[in-house]
């Protein structure tokens, strides 16, 4: 699971080492990446929102 999160974070940042990428693409189903990806997007949005809220107050 932690590996998936790390891969998704790498994708967010846009940079991933070739070895890790090859490894990710060995897995048969993309679903865990999609679910974690969507979840992390929400986390990210809340994070930016939280920073904005902090800055405003």
């Amino acid at each position: 699971m932690l590996k998936v999160i790390r891969s998704v974070l790498a994708a967010f940042f846009g940079v991933q080492s070739e070895a890790n990428r090859q490894q990710d693409f060995q897995s048969t189903s993309p679903w865990k990446f999609i679910v974690v990806g969507v979840f992390m997007t929400l986390v990210f949005v809340f994070l930016v929102g939280f920073v904005a809220w902090l800055a405003a107050n």
Binding site: A11, F12, G14, V15, Q16, T41, V45, V48, G49, V51, A52, W53, A55, A56, N57
Partner: peptide
């Protein structure tokens, strides 16, 4: 990856077209 991030982020930036409508400060910052 960049294409995918742009696509996802594009859903959370819409109010940059509305900065002068009088959104709350937190929303403007977000």
């Amino acid at each position: 990856y960049a294409t995918a991030s742009i696509a996802l982020l594009s859903f959370v930036v819409w109010a940059h077209h509305m900065f002068t409508v009088g959104l709350p400060l937190t929303a403007e910052l977000f």
